[in-house]
């Protein structure tokens, strides 16, 4: 008889614990749902904080970083002497490989008309090192900017680059405005 009572008591404790846990889970779910967002927010880096330290190229969990150089064409000066494209002390003023700045050759250019050139970034080659961004910012308009290319980003729970970013430029952004580009919003608002 003693054991039956013990068995019943255990059953009772289990049931009440179950109810307690269930209620706790429900409380967490309801409490947090009130201030949740529908979809996942996305990681992005603020170009105005970025110092082009080169961390993006090495800290991303992907072997080739999801951070890419984005060319805000509206801000480009279309220069012949592009400091983001050419090394600043080239042997000769031509586009031979040893004169180019990009270590992976991801920037290509095409002649438009005297004296303007169009610059394009081959995204698959870009590793987000920011060398071109640094020089474009120092000498030119800063039309080359580092951004997380969202289709490349795995949207880790905690971004590995954000953890080591010296200027803490990374944050989660709303999926309605997934890019923080200088000189890009104004264009969008115009049309």
């Amino acid at each position: 008889m003693d054991n039956t009572r013990k068995f019943k008591r255990r059953e009772f404790i289990n049931t009440s614990l179950r109810l307690g846990i269930g209620a706790g889970l429900g409380a967490i779910a309801i409490g947090l749902t009130t201030r949740s967002v529908e979809g996942k927010t996305l990681w992005q880096l603020d170009t105005s904080k970025c110092v082009q330290c080169g961390n993006c190229a090495i800290s991303c969990v992907k072997q080739v970083s999801a951070v890419k150089c984005i060319h805000v064409t509206d801000m480009c000066g279309y220069c012949d002497l592009c400091s983001g494209y050419l090394r600043s002390n080239p042997k000769d003023l031509n586009t031979a490989a040893e004169n180019r700045l990009c270590p992976t050759g991801a920037i290509s250019r095409h002649f438009i008309e005297e004296p303007y050139f169009e610059y394009k970034i081959t995204e698959e080659l870009c590793n987000g090192c920011g060398k071109c961004v640094k020089n474009c910012g120092a000498f030119g308009n800063g039309s080359l900017q580092l951004q997380i290319q969202q289709d490349q980003c795995l949207n880790c729970n905690q971004c590995a680059i954000a953890r080591t970013c010296p200027s803490q430029a990374f944050s989660r952004v709303d999926r309605d405005s997934p890019y923080i580009l200088k000189g890009f919003e104004s264009k969008k608002s115009k049309g």
């Binding site: 082009q52 080169g54 600043s88 640094k134 020089n135």
Partner: peptide, 18 residues
């Protein structure tokens, strides 16, 4: 401690020396 990043170790076109 995470490995320190230095200005020099990155951006090959060395603005500091320029």
């Amino acid at each position: 401690k995470p490995a320190a990043l230095t200005n020099a170790s990155c951006c090959g076109d060395d603005l500091v020396s320029m």
